[in-house]
Amino acid sequence: MKDILYKAFFDATQNAFKLMLNILEVSDHPAGDFKCDDEVDIAIGVTGDLQGKVIYRYPVSTSLNIVNIMSGMQFDAVDAFVTSAVSEIANIISGNVLTALSENDMNCDILPPEQCKLDDDKKYDINTSCHIRTAIGEICLEIRLNRA
């Protein structure tokens, strides 16, 4: 299940970057290589057959690059607009993953995106990280889910 989820989130992220940003260079790397001190963390809660959350860790530079490409404007700092835009991308990716999972009889729903902190003491059946590098920066997805 861990591998299926990892691949589903990577594929959905790759697809979103291709269709929304025209970024074709997207690859995954060992999670330990992801180092970032200044990031925007967005949690998408998951309910249903799987329960928990997926945290999208966007470094500030990646967040700004994403919004600059989408808007054709220059954003120099993370604000409510930028946070909301990258939150919606997290929402879109997660929604597409759950649609793909539903085709394999795994039925889940997602909760609206929320800005969050990484700290979490809970134990999860599935706890994996997907470190993704793209031509406009890195992101890391922390997948933390329990089977219902």
């Binding site: 979103a16 269709l19 929304m20 409510a80 909301s84 939150s87 919606e88 879109i92």
Partner: peptide, 24 residues
């Protein structure tokens, strides 16, 4: 103003995804 900035960010990402992916 903060609310409408949030709206703008979501609208931009939603619209691009909807037209570039769903409508295609």
């Amino acid at each position: 103003e903060q609310l409408i900035q949030q709206f703008g960010g979501k609208l931009l990402a939603w619209l691009i995804n909807h037209v570039a992916a769903e409508d295609q």
